[in-house]
Amino acid sequence: MSSSLNFDSQCTSLEAIKKAAYVFSDRCALDISEDESSYICKIIPKKDSTIDNYEDFEIEFRNEVLDQELRIEIANKTDGVKNLILAFAFSKSGLSDND
């Protein structure tokens, strides 16, 4: 048995869907395709999958996609300062050519 989930491609990033798919990869594989306005995700359960209720799974998956969107947003907003902090942390370590 398989089922599909659709995500509006204007509002949802493909990266977030893929990251969410990775989180659930112990339970299913995701076949992702795209039409003009949506990402279409066909859920392919693994053998002995614990997906008994697709409605519950859909809620869980959509929430995970939202969390992944938030993680991507945090990373985008903080990657610059993260690199700055790490550069400072390693600046006296002897690992840099400029030490």
Binding site: D67, L70, R71, I74, K77, T78, D79, V81, K82, I85
Partner: peptide
């Protein structure tokens, strides 16, 4: 300014 962080539920 946000500093790098992660979250879990």
């Amino acid at each position: 300014e946000l500093l790098p962080f992660r979250f879990a539920r």
